[in-house]
Design a protein around this nucleic acid. Structure first.
Lengths: 198, 198, 198, 198
DNA sequence: GATGAATGAGGCTTCATTCAT
DNA sequence: CATGAATGAAGCCTCATTCAT
């Protein structure tokens, strides 16, 4: 009944799983490795996650939370432009961002095959789009970005753009090059978003 | 001596492999399934590709050719803007584009773990960037896009953007929505590329 | 925690493996056969021996213990001559000695290709030579064998001789013939060992 | 119909097979490797030897000839003692003797499982024993070795002894040590063979 | 006579998962 | 609750051998 301890153990396992998946991918990372990294027996693992796929889903949901979080951070930023730059630069300078992105790539690929993951995934997408839509509409009201853009479809475009940029950063070379690329990419994006003539 | 027949068989196998990988992913698609789809014995498969990874690499190289091809198509287009729209719309309306993209996601993820794939992959990237750079520089000369943009870094940005957009299209819902999204995305991109004030 | 049961199971597997290797040789005996003979699943086998080669090594080490044991028995014998006769006759009359020797032949051959086995093997050899050297020196002191012989090199010679004799017994025909051969062989050996003129 | 060329090809194949078997053992050496080493197609191999086992047998028979040859050499030697020393020293100094012995070990082990090989093998043994018996009887008549020894059983003993010694030389260390060992081993053997008191 | 291509059978190993303790 | 032990299913790959050309 030690719910607290149980939750902590659960998170340890998830951390271990993330660590393993990052390095080896879903299929190559075995439950044995994960449980060893989590200092638990293999059988013990199954008391927290009835299936390897469930572990994956838990991780996906965790990612979802993080994504929504940075959108919320962005919403709080004084200037959307500066907030975006800060977001992308942080990512570009984050050692390990590559791993995180790789995991996401795999999750995305996997999502298209496992309906359960797909469900979680499309939920994430919907909520992200909604949050970014609100954010954009808000900034349109403030005149920060072009008022003629449709908030929802632009939200999708921005998210797609960020996905692409993060992907290239993850695969890309040294962090210096990544930083330059991040700046240029955001500049281009901003040229598209800002009110014409400003 | 029947080099032709051999090459044909090889392509059959690659097609079968692509089909299987698309549906199940690299690790989940077994050599048995692939060879059955290719109407060949498992042992026979290994006379054409000494390793499952080699099969993957062959597929990656094939993708490379296709990518370079569409860049070349784009270069021939009267108007870059129209060429881009055509490219993205074709993709958005292509049934099966999702599969292709999914495979690419997995390849990208795998590339970060298999050095051989990574090598082929980074070669692809370099050639793509070079080709798009040339294309952009050319269009800058024609005044079609903003002359102040650095061709190479902009090439990277455009490629990243397209990656992201294609990814969302692939995962996205019905083709009608995809088409609308494609239009909006390209409009945003173009606002970023075109000469200011035009 | 059931260390005892685990050790027992381990020995069962080793016995099964010996049985299979004896009859079919290393390469021809499959893990499937061994595990079936050991009444365990193939996967279970791998919890006790991480590799087929490890199983072999365990068997080699077991042989080593047995070899050292008979040297120790020999050392306790009243008369070295009688001890040797007893040793060889026991071997000659042992049904199954052929199998044991055959396995040893294969191990020896394998040792020259697998460095790990070779290491275990050369360790065995060194310890055997040392033990027999001590034994011979002891008997020289008692005047039982010729004092001019160098203990170590003679130890090697005796061991080589016994190897050869055991080999012929193993391959040889009926046990009656083997017995006669054993007697004659030992007589010849003893003519070489005993003090001249005695 | 080019019988000569055919025979030559056959011998090339046997040489290639010996080379491969020596290095990798029977089971590990594949027909593919052998045929490549023999510069022939795999299918071509099967026109000379209908089965891998037949190839092995041909090699065994070849060995038999060589063994009988050295017995015949020994018979021609002025002094049996010197002839033996020469024989063993040549072997001890022969680079590659280890490989040859290893192959023999494997053959011996295999012989106990394949009845066809066993037949060839026991034929070899019988002929060797007969030849050495004659040799010993001859030398007894000349007073070179003890007349009370039974020729046949002594022949077996000597052959077993040589097997053992050759085995230890093959596995043994550097050639210097081997030479010393060879000398000591033969000295011991000779003490057993020579007429008492001589 | 020689060969490239093909294959059925099988080998070793690993995995996700269960269950008695 | 936790775990050591066990396992069926499956995966990748290799081999000896055949056959149409």
């Amino acid at each position: 009944m030690d719910l607290e301890g149980r939750a902590a153990r659960r998170m340890e396992i998830m951390a271990a799983a993330r660590w393993c998946f990052l390095r080896k991918g879903f299929h190559a990372a075995s439950t044995a490795e994960i449980s060893e990294k989590a200092s638990i027996s293999v059988a013990g693992l199954y008391q927290y996650f009835p299936t390897k796929a469930d572990l994956v889903m838990a991780l996906v949901e965790e990612d979802l939370e993080m994504d929504l979080e940075w959108v919320s951070d962005l919403a709080k930023a004084e200037s959307l432009h500066d907030g975006l730059i800060k977001l992308v630069l942080e990512y570009a300078n984050d050692v390990g961002c590559g791993d995180a992105m790789r995991l996401r790539l795999e999750v995305t690929a996997e999502a298209s095959r496992d309906p359960k993951i797909a469900a979680v995934f499309s939920d994430l997408e919907a909520r992200l789009v909604a949050a970014v839509s609100r954010l954009l509409a808000d900034r349109q009201a403030k005149g920060e970005i072009d008022a003629t853009l449709d908030p929802e479809v632009t939200a999708r475009t921005v998210l797609a753009f960020l996905d692409g940029v993060f992907g290239w950063i993850a695969v890309g070379g040294d962090s210096r090059a990544n930083e330059a690329f991040a700046h240029a990419a955001l500049a281009l994006l901003w040229r598209g978003l800002k009110p014409i003539g400003s």
